[in-house]
Design a protein around this nucleic acid. Sequence first.
DNA 1: AAAAAAC
Length: 507
Amino acid sequence: MSFSDLGLSEKVLAAVAATGYTTPTPIQEQAIPHVLARKDVLGIAQTGTGKTAAFVLPMLTILEKGRARARMPRTLILEPTRELAAQVKENFDRYGAGQKLNVALLIGGVSFGDQDAKLTRGVDVLIATPGRLLDHTERGGLLLTGVELLVIDEADRMLDMGFIPDIERVCKLVPFTRQTLFFTATMPPEIRRITETFLHNPQKVEVSKPATTAVTVTQCQVPAGREAHEKRELLRRLLREAKDLQNAIIFCNRKREVAIVHKSLQKHGFSVGALHGDMDQSARTAALEQFRKGELPLLVASDVAARGLDIPEVSHVFNFDVPHHPDDYVHRVGRTGRAGRTGTAISLVTPLDQKSIVAIEKLIGQSIPRAEGDYEVSADTGEHSDRPRESRGRERSRGGRGKPQRGGRDRERSHEPRVEARPAAETRPAPEARPEREARPAREARPPREARQSSERHGSRQQANPSHVPSIGRPEPRRQREADTEPGDHSHLPAFLLRPVRSPAGA
DNA sequence: AAAAAAC
């Protein structure tokens, strides 16, 4: 089976060929003919199955005929997160390069006026998150009465996020006669109910979903202290000692923790970005882009990054916090070991996480081996011991195939000369070097909620001008420093993990 | 226990 057997237009086939893809994935093979036949489709597929191209490619073929009218998009795609929406747009840009196609992205956090101007010119494809879409329709700048094809992507996730009422409102604004493509990874009762109201005689297309983690991923859990600073210290150690680490996503359960861990790693010289939903949109985009390009090997993220984002070849996933829902674990770990590649997933597990781990092991149908060696932080000082303690008497023998087994022995790098960062000439301040101005030691009192949110939302304004970025790598003197954020010895860090040092002269 | 999404 090849793409040319599916009924796609010549232009689209040429664009696909140009990207080097030759064989459609199962979801593409099954869904594309139905879409081209203008049938409703119920697609049950997870991200990473080629789902996006399964609707983008036939839509491009369909859109070759006809033309958009002002404020009346011809097709509408709903996505749960801004990043996913942007990613779908990239797909249209890539495969639709040979067509004169107007594609608009309607997401929050960016200029309303630019979006409005684009709508006025007429768009063929509108890709949106629900909030901003409804904002535009309520202001009258957008009419959905011309929508011929509606895509609801990641429906189960939209359900989790409480978007279903919004989706129902949107469905009332689009013509009854439209074609609907509905994608979900799971079929909970509520999703089943809405498919009955949104879809007419749908063609069901299902690909076996990996309800579990890929076999190419080596998973392990590392016992961690309960205190956050202990975990940060342990994380640094795991990063330094991880084998074959190319790049990594470090997941935290809370946005606040993302900010703190990001800042802490920066202070310790790691080249690291952050991604969570309270960050300025430009900062989110910049962090993701730099991570994709490999300019930043490390990304600290909330679960906004757990699903769907196309980040190829992540070698390691760290769960700084064990997710409370086992599904989230599967999604996070699914960021590595994709397309048959190998990957490593390391979870920092405190005694409080035991229940979560049990639930995860049950879901994935295997036990997660505990790492051998000593990664614990001594409780009294918060300092870790570099030497592996001999048998600690804990029952940690299960499995034992954990990745980081070297304890503190593998220290040859520390005898090497200090690793220099990249040459100053090629370094420039990251557009988004410090999204987290508000990150402060956990023990410090927090400002009132209003002030906090405002600072989180708007705190990155100064980043618009990179010259305002405070000099990186030096602790700010007024701030009380935590023991673990002492910017210290980076000599164990592989060079590529080091944050580039800015030239003091600034050019 | 959280995150995500509109101003």
